[in-house]
Structures are given as C-alpha cells and as structure tokens.
C-alpha cells in the first residue's frame, strides 16, 4: 500500500464523501416525509389514495435502485423530462426509501395494541387526541429499529449513484482504478470512507433505540 498515493487521492475522496453524505441524507429526509405521509394514508385507509400508495410501495420495493435511477436519469429524458444527476439521486433514494419507511411506520402504527385505543377513548379522548398522545408516540418507538435499519440500508445504496455519473465515493474509486490501476489503495479508501459514514449512524441508532424503548 502506497501512502503517497492515498494522500494524493484523499482530497477527491473527501469531496466525494461529502457529496455522498449530502445526497444520502437529503434522500433519507425525503424518504422520511414520503414514508410518514404514505403510512398515515394506509393507516387511516384514505379512499383512493391508499390504492395509489399500495401501488407505489410495491413498485419501488420490488425494483432495484439502479433500475429506478436508470429510468429517471436515462428514461425520462426520452419523454422530455430532464433531471440533473444530483436531483436524480435524491429522488431515487427518496422514492425507494419512502416505500420502505412507509411500511415501517405503518407496521409501527398497527402494532399499537387495540386496548390502548379503547382505554384512551374510555377516558373521553377524541380520535385526534388518541392519535397524537397515545398511538403516534408508541408507534414511533416501535418503528425506530426498522427506521434505523432503513437509514443504514439507504446510505449503502448510495453506492449505485456512480452509474448516473455522480461523483460519489464509488465513482471516485472506480475512476482512480481506471486511470492509475491503484486498485488496492482506491478500494481501501472506499471501504474506510463508507465505514466512517456508517459506523456513527449505527452507534447513534442503537442509542436512539434504547432511549425510545419503554
């Protein structure tokens, strides 16, 4: 392993690292919002909308992110919709993650025992109060482990962004390998940067899981 090579690659890897983090977390935030909205629609069985949500969830959970990105990046321009690569990455990740988050939130909501609803109602709470003070906090706690797992999964999925020419970590590593054949140094840096990105999330995740359990 050549330390000099690593040193010279470092600046571009750091740039790629921040780009990956940026797109990854914006995508996850989007996934979060989509997931919550969809889970509410499913939980309250909102007519018409819940049909759409079910279709959306199945579509995105059962197709690979790479295929989704190709479709958004290369497919849509054919019908005149051109989206820049970064936005494509965010959209792809958000839509994929949204379908997973929706399922996690929904199962959390449905896992709150019926007796909780009944005791809240028997205390005179309205449906709204019941949802805000009783169902939602419990559902969130139940969902936390699944949400943390989703976040880690989504951050790892960012490695396919290179396929739509985003200069993320994977792209940078492949680029260096292609240019200079320093396979080991490039892949070493790639692994290190992914671990640096994900390890804190795993740690924070288990702390949050512990704090949120009751």
């Amino acid at each position: 392993m050549d330390v000099e090579v690593i040193k010279s690659y470092l600046p571009n890897f750091i740039k790629a690292f921040f780009l990956t983090i940026k797109i990854g977390w914006i995508g996850i935030a989007l996934a979060f919002i989509i997931g919550i909205v969809c889970a509410f629609i499913l939980y309250f069985k909102v007519p018409v909308f819940s049909g759409f949500v079910k279709g959306y969830v199945e579509l995105f959970r059962n197709t690979p992110l790479l295929v989704q990105l190709f479709f958004i990046y290369y497919g849509l321009p054919a019908i005149g919709v051109k989206i820049p690569a970064e936005l494509c990455g965010i959209l792809g990740l958000g839509l994929l993650g949204g379908s997973y988050m929706a399922e996690s939130f929904r199962s959390g909501l449905e896992a709150v025992p019926v007796i909780q609803t009944e005791s809240a109602l028997s205390l005179g709470m309205t449906r709204r109060q019941l949802f805000i003070y009783v169902i939602l906090p419990q559902a969130f706690s139940i969902s936390v482990p699944a949400i943390v797992a989703n976040i880690i999964f989504l951050l790892k999925e960012t490695s396919v962004f290179s396929a739509i020419s985003l200069m993320d970590l994977m792209f940078t590593a492949k680029d260096y390998i292609g240019l200079y054949y320093n396979t080991f140094e490039s892949l070493f840096l790639l692994v290190i940067f992914y671990i640096v990105m994900l390890l804190p999330v795993s740690f924070a995740g288990s702390i949050i899981e512990r704090k949120c359990s009751f």
Binding site: I115, Q116, V134
Partner: peptide, 10 residues
C-alpha cells in the same frame, strides 16, 4: 378499567 393492564407504556 380493563382486564389487561392498559396504562400508556410511554
């Protein structure tokens, strides 16, 4: 008051 302990666990 119900049979199962129905306090709000959170």
């Amino acid at each position: 008051v119900f049979q199962s302990y129905d306090l709000f666990p959170h």
